[in-house]
Design a protein around this nucleic acid. Structure first.
Lengths: 351, 351
DNA sequence: CTGTTAGCGCTTTCAG
DNA sequence: CTGAAAGCGCTAACAG
């Protein structure tokens, strides 16, 4: 008796979240009927449906998604892993992902690798345990092993890579055509009369660096100029790295009159280095870069052009691709590729 | 018989994810023993534990967290809702949240309101259905109704607000002391000899605007100057709004020699407006602002000082507060407040 | 130390 | 149209 009472009290205090069972009991019907009513199942009486819905509203009833996730083996959750959100490119990409995801009742789990391979692995592991339905990944710039991705593949968990893509076979990707973007940029410079064009590139190992270099060479050759390897410097993309690259370029006998940089962040550092060394005053150097930071229109010596990579659209497309795979019953949906054509945006804000 | 066969084939094709039941069957023991072995429960024989772990490894067995979430009524997931990640302030805050969350086995669900109240509500709704354990929220600048927060409170779902905080009683908050920050900034300007100091503030309705105004007035009064309301303009924080504010300030008989802006984004727009109108040339105006964008050191006329609000730390503290509430068995943990002291960072990069 | 049992909240045949 | 029953994968008394 005492126990019974305690139980009742606990029950009351806990302010339990209502369940179908309770609704069923209060209405003297079965849980299956409640379930059917709540889901507008065709074979359910109008009467009962109305009674159920009414009581549900009254009790503030809400489906327990964790039970449904568990039951359906589907969580309506996608894991997004990217280097870091402070890069505008990625925060815009995630908006694209989120918008499409939300429209389709999906929710987004985020993890930043901070360009650390171990972290990337750890994030994938926990997200996998959370049973996300799929992944959207832009890999860390320092990731050199792909076991964690291979593992997901083995377990049949769909994934879409965008922007920073591992060199693996048979994966789904969304990316920008960096090579043609580079060609456009270099061509613009050549047309404007620049003849000595430097390239501050990223780590040689990255595909993204190779694509830039290829485009650079192609554009140079197309204009019947000869490729001067001394004008191309590979860096680790840090501020220090950029400064060293600038030092090297500026002391070279053929000082570049224009420089193409790996991205806008590198351009900012490069411009700053030049200014500190009073280079702008004597001989102006024009910059062109990737990524098109919104802050470009505010900076002191903005790049004369930027290669827009449409991060928002890349995010959208990645999520759309993932949805497509998830919707497909037969899981043989691999090797989906989307290539987005970049656009050269000439910066005329201040000129 | 035919059915039996089909069933077996399906079973094989599906490449089922292993469960405890299977391990148990293969080893001829009960699932509870498997569970105990996998969790290093004290009362389990060394023999069985080893056998179980061995087979588990072999099968690549992994706990099905959705079952555990469901069973435990706990998802180890927190919902983070903020205006937009492209603002560096928020992307840094989320790093702080994520770092603390991951260290404690939590995972982060993100949603951007884009300063839209309806979207904020929708995000809260889906996250609630996903049964997140708690929320960390920085409210949209256009949110004026608080039913969605009240509803969470009623349902006993813990939440912590940071930076943009609703005017509600008995909530957990993490914020920066904007008023003292403003005092520091204005005092610096006064000490440097500026006497006519403008303030481009945010919407009057926001607490954040009031705090700035209060600090501004206090600093002015402390220096025995009199407060001139014509030097304070409220804007909606858009570029257009800022331009109008600048127009108004520049045509006022007492043209300010220094301007304090609501944040760095406003400062950028203000500087640009001034430059376009050739104001910098004739009479220099110095700017001071909030938020300390990393791009500050690259911009043309950077603010001479910025009020650092430590977004990363605010994120960390918010998550720590939430963890503290979640850890507490008795749910009466409301009204936890943390105030972070801002720091005036003098920008001497170029001066 | 180990097995049995019941149950978490919901869906879904299968019978009425 | 509705109810009974089984089961998703795991945990946790309770009995041995």
């Amino acid at each position: 008796m005492g126990n019974e009472l305690t139980w009742v009290i606990i029950k009351l205090m806990a302010a339990e979240i209502p369940t179908m069972k309770e609704i069923a009991k209060k209405l003297g019907i079965s849980t299956s009927s409640v379930s059917r009513a709540l889901h507008n199942h065709p074979s359910i009486g109008l009467r009962t449906r109305m009674r159920v819905n009414e009581l549900a509203k009254e009790l503030d009833y809400e489906l327990n998604q964790t039970a449904i996730f568990f039951h359906n083996k589907k969580t309506f959750t996608v894991g997004v892993i990217l280097p870091q959100l402070t890069e505008t490119f990625f925060s815009e990409a995630i908006s694209g992902i989120e918008d499409i995801a939300n429209k389709n009742k999906y929710t987004v789990l985020v993890g930043q690798s901070h360009n650390n391979e171990e972290r990337e692995k750890a994030i994938i592991q926990t997200m996998k345990e959370h049973r996300v339905d799929g992944f959207i990944i832009s890999i860390s710039k320092n990731t050199t092993h792909y076991e964690h991705f291979e593992m997901l593949k083995k377990h049949n968990i769909p994934m879409v890579f965008f922007d920073c893509i591992p060199q693996m076979k048979n994966i789904n990707t969304v990316e920008c055509n960096i090579e043609t973007g580079t060609i456009k940029a270099v061509t613009l410079l050549l047309k404007k009369g620049y003849r000595i064009i430097g390239l501050i590139n990223g780590p040689e190992r990255l595909l993204a660096s190779k694509q830039r270099l290829d485009g650079y060479k192609l554009a140079i050759h197309k204009h019947r100029l000869k490729y001067d390897p001394n004008l191309v410097i590979n860096t680790d993309l840090t501020t220090i790295g950029t400064q060293n690259a600038m030092l090297q370029l500026l002391k070279y006998k053929r000082v570049p009159t224009a420089i193409l940089t790996f991205n806008d962040y590198v351009a900012l550092d490069a411009v700053q280095y030049a200014r500190k060394n009073n280079v702008m005053a004597s001989s102006e150097i024009s910059f062109v870069s990737f990524a098109n930071l919104p802050s470009n229109c505010y900076t002191s010596y903005p790049p004369i052009a930027s290669i827009e990579q449409f991060p928002y659209q890349q995010g959208q497309k990645s999520m759309e691709t993932l949805l497509q795979i998830l919707a497909d019953p037969k899981k043989e949906n691999n090797g989906l590729k989307t290539i987005i054509e970049p656009q050269l945006v000439v910066n005329d804000i201040l000129s």
